[in-house]
């Protein structure tokens, strides 16, 4: 399973992409990731209503190839999607890339 989070906007206006591959994680981290994915509702949320608010895309590619996706603005995350995005972006496990 791979989880990819794209975050754009903010005062920097920078597009940041962070990808986590569960196969590269230790058992505890992989379990945390699966728990967060299981708790995530993959509908879209409202866009950010503020200038320089962040916009997000959270995409989960399962081992069987299916993909679930959620897009939302800052403060508008569907249940579980914000926690999953934070874990991926702020944690130490992701491969990070700046640029569109």
């Amino acid at each position: 399973m791979k989880v990819t989070v794209v975050r754009s906007g903010g005062v920097a206006g920078m597009v940041l992409t962070v990808e986590v591959d569960a196969a590269e994680l230790d058992a505890d981290a992989a379990a945390q990731l699966r728990g967060l994915v299981d708790a995530c509702e993959f509908g879209d949320g409202p866009p950010s209503a503020i200038a320089d608010g962040f916009g997000y895309e959270v995409a989960v590619e399962r081992d069987d190839g299916t993909v679930e996706r959620s897009r939302f603005g800052q403060g508008g995350a569907p249940p579980g999607a914000g926690a999953l995005a934070s874990w991926v972006i702020d944690g130490p496990y992701g491969h990070r890339r700046a640029g569109r």
């Binding site: 906007g9 916009g55 569109r100």
Partner: peptide, 15 residues
Amino acid sequence: DDDPRNDNGGVHVNS
């Protein structure tokens, strides 16, 4: 559109 990569039509890009 709602794709964050597109930055609301490039507001931080074309500025």
